[in-house]
Design a protein around this nucleic acid. Sequence first.
DNA 1: TCTGGGGTCCTAGGACCC
DNA 2: TCTGGGGTCCTAGGACCC
Length: 436
Amino acid sequence: MTKLFALIDCNNFYVSCERVFRPDLEERPVAVLSNNDGCIVARSAEVKALGVPMGAPYFKVRGILTAHGVEVFSSNYELYGDMSARVMSVLSRFSPDVEVYSIDEAFIGLNGFQDRDLEAYARELRTTVKRWTGIPVSVGIAPTKTLAKLAAERVKKKPVLDGVMVLTDPGSIQIAMAATPVSDVWGVGRRWVRRFKTLGVYTAWDFTQQPQYWVRKKMGVGGMRTHLELQGTPCFGLKDQPRDRKSCVASRSFAQPVTQLDDLKEAVATFAARAGKRLRQGGLVAGQVMAFAHSDRFRKDRPQRQVAATVALVTPSNLTQDITRAAFQALQRAYRPGYGYKRAGVMLLDLAPAQDKQPTLFAPSKADQSKAERLQSALDRINGLRRTRHDLVSLGSVGLVMKQRGGKKGGWHLRREHQSPRYTTAWAELPTVQAE
DNA sequence: TCTGGGGTCCTAGGACCC
DNA sequence: TCTGGGGTCCTAGGACCC
């Protein structure tokens, strides 16, 4: 039986999220920035038309944006995460086989749908998502995931398709591939696009015409899979069950380079707490903790340095206390004075399920719970009471430097000057509606 | 002045073993 | 005199994704 996949892709997702609560921004140029207000990570069609590229540093395009009255937002991941969950829950009504691929994309398995009117199915899905969440989506349907992605790409470039493209017969697949730049193919990155140019390979179709042995030899198994998928042979199945995570990173760039170990420690304590929290939410423990720091890679005129060290935990843990202690050890070991560090982080490795934390299997009695665990759950409960931007209570090491400086911010705090309210996840920030 | 953050998988090469 | 070859595991780095 031939396989069939749909890819559902939210259009300009972060921009669309902002527009749901600001209908006045419909048809107006809108852009969303990365953390630290660093780069452009989402652009409305109007901003794309201005020629502002994805990933452009904000400071370089600020002039154009201002000149054209572009509404600019700092990223608001709490809002986007919540809107994403809403979209995905609508999708789950359309098929039991949904793979959430990223915050703004999902694959749907359509085996057994071959005899249905796929176009009508896709249109109904699209209309329903829009009506129930406010988010516009593109839908691509094809026999492989790579072709479904390609179809969704075509949809975005051709408004006449009105959000849906079904690629099932070989003729239309070939036409679509010939019209798709190879750079838009899922799995073909910058490096290969550059290489392809010298070989006269410009479109997805050109790529399929390369001999298979060459692709396998030069591009490895990854390239070969993409090659086969474009030719209609599925190499990727639907991942119905998300694989357990293998690592967890919490890191940030700093507004100003940081040179002092104490400042780095303060930042690393924050990262350790953030990463630990994510681990506990996922029911995982870490076996190893890595701390790292990098100098400013854009300042070639300054000495460059990347430092990192890993410390193994005696017992795998997800307690902020344990992770922070290990992260401090690692940082101490890795730190070299004399460099301006622009970014630092904590990476948790060797993740495994926190089995003895699963109450249904091995419910530990209250008495057995160690003091440290009880402290951690107490902290988590307090911090869960109110949804604030920052934890109410944290270990003493977080923000220590700040206090020592009499409340003056350490150099590493985030810039976030254009943030919208958390309309759907914070009571105090709910939108208000007035009826006349 | 100002350039994101969080992931996965694959490969090549070294260490080690028999 | 003779100086192999294959397997496994680990790690660092590359490439790619959103």
